[in-house]
């Protein structure tokens, strides 16, 4: 499962997520979605720290963020 996932069809390409990302891993994809926007995307999933800053800034609730469960013991 991906740490950060974008519902690309809902993305309006505003880039607020990219600016908020402390890891600077969010980019606007060269492809267009059906609304005609370049959707936000992350290719370097392993660098995501699951801080959810991107999701907090997203006006279109496009982003789902997950993190690994802490192993006990």
């Amino acid at each position: 499962m991906l740490r950060v996932e974008f519902d690309e069809e809902r993305c309006k390409g505003c880039e607020l997520c990219a600016a908020a990302c402390p890891q600077r891993i969010i980019v606007m994809a060269p492809r267009l979605n059906t609304m005609g926007f370049h959707p936000a995307t992350v290719t370097e999933q392993e660098r995501c720290i699951s801080c959810a800053f991107c999701a907090r800034m997203c006006p279109d609730v496009v982003i789902t963020v997950r993190k690994e469960e802490k192993k006990r013991g």
Binding site: A52, A55, V61, T64, V65, R66, K67, E68, E69
Partner: peptide
């Protein structure tokens, strides 16, 4: 994996 951020139910 646990979800830390998803769409709220009230939307």
């Amino acid at each position: 994996m646990i979800t830390v951020f998803e769409r709220p139910k009230s939307l």
